[in-house]
């Protein structure tokens, strides 16, 4: 794994037309730390995640990796440093599992075929799916697909990983395996931002939990502080509904 970096968002604003989705978000994740972002649907969590790797460009504010603003970097180069995992897995259905991983390695990292395959095999092994290398994504369960998606992102040796409700589309019995993999990554020192509805995961794994509502972080802190002694009434109400 390549060295992790710290991540900071400063006063990030973003509007879609007249709809203000992010209204000044601040978030800090220490190097190797894990931040979980929780909050009701439509609060801007997924949008926030996309401003980190600039799939969406913030209208205002700043995104910093190791204290340095990345908003003027080449976005493609920036995204090569940041892995992202989606709710719907988004594997490329027209290629094998292994090819899903080697394609970016060969085309972006410019690895030779042998080296790319070796790294893909190693990552598949790490997520417990070495036997599925030749299968098409459609022949895998949702949980397996998500683990492949994580392997694909990790193979690029990112410095930060973003998870956008990575387990929300999974059948309940498949959630555990994916969460275990994410927890393992966290303990290995990957800097992670995890948008999630899994409060158990947030409580156990996160260093920081940020509660978002209506485009701002209303409250952030250590899991114990958020889950046991929440101050903001909105957060307390939210927790009473989901816990």
């Amino acid at each position: 794994m390549s060295t992790s970096v710290s991540l900071s968002l400063r006063d990030v604003h973003l509007a879609f037309g007249s709809h203000q989705v992010l209204r000044g978000v601040d978030l800090d994740v220490a190097r190797g730390g894990t931040a979980c972002v929780i909050g009701p649907s439509g609060s801007g969590k997924s949008t926030l995640l996309r401003t980190v790797n600039r799939l969406l460009e913030p209208d205002r504010g700043d995104v910093l990796l190791d204290g340095r603003s990345v908003l003027r970097d080449d976005p493609d180069a920036l995204r090569q440093r940041i892995g992202m995992v989606f709710q719907q897995f988004n594997l490329f259905p027209h290629m094998s599992v292994e090819r899903n991983i080697t394609l970016p390695l060969r085309r972006i990292r410019k690895l030779g075929e042998d080296e790319a395959v070796a790294r893909a095999r190693a990552e598949l092994d790490r997520v417990g799916l070495a036997a599925k290398a030749d299968a098409r994504p459609a022949h895998l369960s949702g949980g397996q697909q998500q683990r492949v998606a994580i392997a694909r992102a990790l193979a690029m040796q990112p410095q930060v990983m973003l998870f956008d409700e990575a387990t929300s589309a999974l059948d309940p019995e498949l959630v555990k395996g994916v969460l275990a993999l994410m927890a393992e990554l966290s303990t290995q020192g990957m800097t992670m931002v995890v948008v999630t509805h899994e409060m158990g995961f947030a409580r156990e794994v996160a260093d920081t939990v940020a509660f978002m509502d209506a485009g701002v972080v209303l409250e952030a802190g250590e899991p114990a502080a958020i889950f046991e002694s929440a101050r903001h009434p909105r957060l307390r109400r939210f927790l009473s509904q989901v816990l």
Partner: peptide, 12 residues
């Protein structure tokens, strides 16, 4: 979402 996933990996 396929385009988004490819862009997120760093493809132009």
């Amino acid at each position: 979402t396929q385009l988004e996933a490819a862009r997120a990996l760093g493809f132009s």
